[in-house]
Computed example of a mutant assay.
Amino acid sequence: MYGTGARYLDSLSNTSFFIKLLAAFLIAGFFIEFVHRVTVQLDKSYDWKEKPLVRLLLQFALGMLLPGIIDLFFLSIYQWYFGINTMYKDPSAQSSFPVMALPVFLFNVYYLFYYHILRNKQDKEQTPSSNEILLVQQGTKTIPIFLTDIRFIYHQNRMNYLVTCEESKFYLNETLDELERNLPHRDFFRVNRKMIIHYRACLNFKSNGHGKLILNLEPPFAGEVTVSQNRSTQFKEWIKR
């Protein structure tokens, strides 16, 4: 209705008003979801802190420019279908495109601030320090192990084990899911369902030709250690630190 000169209260008695309102909500919902999906995918490959310039360009191109073009297309169809004419002597002053494009910009700003709030919270919770330890069991004794001494944690025969840099092995009560949540993500990575490794444990890795990665660990692990195909890209970014 913006730019048409219509009276809002008078329009409430018109059935077509609610049809137009529903169409506007569907378009708005589409753009909220579109910007959200673009942002989530970019978060996976182009972190704001690691690649700020590339991320800024891609966010602008895919999160603002592309939705703006699609927005203009939707707006043209919308106005044609409902017979809305907003073209006056000064089209730029009456066009409703800036009003429709503004939410696309605001969605991007919202996700940017939301990302940084979550990232700062995560960094505070997971900032590693030299005196962080993990408690392990050995018989009736409870032993504190420095996180920097851990090389990998694995699941075998319904048991979870921890191996240190000195090749000492300990039993763990926690599940791998619990450990993955509590260990600092900067230093530890869940390579597959049955293993979490410290970055110092990885001597080298290679592709098996099918998208997976095969790791060579130190201390040596009895068995093949692989990174699944859907985690391989994330692993390569993580191991660069």
Rank of each mutant, 00 (worst) to 15 (best):
residue 109 V to F: 13
residue 182 N to S: 14
residue 46 Y to Q: 09
residue 25 F to H: 11
residue 195 M to N: 11
residue 10 D to L: 13
residue 22 L to A: 15
residue 122 Q to G: 00
residue 104 V to Q: 08
residue 77 I to W: 08
residue 169 K to L: 11
residue 182 N to D: 13
residue 4 T to A: 11
residue 50 E to P: 01
residue 27 I to A: 14
residue 72 L to K: 02
residue 204 N to I: 00
residue 201 A to D: 03
residue 146 F to M: 10
residue 86 T to Q: 13
residue 144 P to Q: 07
residue 181 R to F: 09
residue 176 L to H: 05
residue 34 F to A: 06
residue 41 Q to Y: 11
residue 49 K to M: 08
residue 170 F to Q: 02
residue 146 F to V: 00
residue 156 Q to S: 14
residue 94 Q to D: 07
residue 187 D to K: 03
residue 59 Q to F: 00
residue 79 Q to K: 09
residue 48 W to L: 12
residue 7 R to K: 11
residue 104 V to W: 01
residue 174 E to Q: 15
residue 214 I to S: 07
residue 21 L to S: 15
residue 22 L to I: 13
residue 224 E to V: 12
residue 97 F to P: 01
residue 129 S to A: 09
residue 221 F to N: 09
residue 146 F to R: 14
residue 240 K to D: 04
residue 125 E to D: 10
residue 5 G to A: 08
residue 105 F to V: 15
residue 50 E to Q: 13
residue 124 K to N: 12
residue 90 D to F: 09
residue 86 T to Y: 06
residue 216 N to A: 08
residue 199 Y to A: 09
residue 128 P to T: 07
residue 158 R to Q: 12
residue 175 T to W: 04
residue 208 N to R: 03
residue 138 Q to P: 00
residue 141 K to F: 02
residue 230 N to D: 13
residue 173 N to Y: 02
residue 28 A to N: 06
residue 126 Q to T: 05
residue 12 L to G: 15
residue 170 F to P: 06
residue 127 T to V: 02
residue 142 T to N: 10
residue 202 C to I: 05
residue 234 Q to K: 12
residue 40 V to F: 11
residue 218 E to S: 14
residue 41 Q to W: 10
residue 239 I to W: 09
residue 33 E to R: 10
residue 138 Q to G: 01
residue 19 I to A: 14
residue 84 I to S: 12
residue 65 L to Q: 08
residue 135 L to Q: 12
residue 160 N to E: 09
residue 12 L to R: 09
residue 129 S to L: 07
residue 139 G to I: 03
residue 35 V to I: 04
residue 80 W to M: 14
residue 228 S to F: 07
residue 39 T to F: 15
residue 126 Q to M: 08
residue 133 I to V: 13
residue 220 P to F: 01
residue 27 I to S: 12
residue 28 A to K: 02
residue 230 N to Y: 04
residue 194 K to H: 13
residue 25 F to P: 00
residue 81 Y to E: 06
residue 194 K to S: 15
residue 145 I to L: 09
residue 3 G to I: 03
residue 37 R to Y: 03
residue 78 Y to R: 04
residue 75 L to P: 01
residue 136 V to S: 13
residue 99 V to W: 04
residue 106 L to Y: 07
residue 213 L to I: 05
residue 171 Y to E: 13
residue 217 L to P: 07
residue 21 L to K: 05
residue 223 G to N: 07
residue 61 A to P: 01
residue 107 F to C: 13
residue 102 L to I: 03
residue 91 P to M: 04
residue 4 T to H: 10
residue 160 N to Q: 08
residue 191 V to R: 07
residue 78 Y to A: 08
residue 219 P to Y: 02
residue 241 R to L: 08
residue 143 I to Y: 05
residue 101 A to Y: 10
residue 203 L to W: 00
residue 177 D to I: 05
residue 62 L to G: 12
residue 72 L to A: 15
residue 237 E to W: 00
residue 43 D to L: 05
residue 131 N to P: 00
residue 99 V to H: 02
residue 224 E to K: 11
residue 52 P to N: 04
residue 207 S to F: 03
residue 188 F to S: 04
residue 3 G to M: 03
residue 94 Q to F: 14
residue 17 F to W: 09
residue 238 W to I: 06
residue 100 M to H: 06
residue 241 R to F: 02
residue 152 F to K: 04
residue 73 F to H: 01
residue 61 A to N: 04
residue 37 R to Q: 13
residue 57 L to S: 10
residue 149 D to E: 13
residue 83 G to M: 02
residue 108 N to W: 01
residue 119 R to M: 01
residue 214 I to T: 10
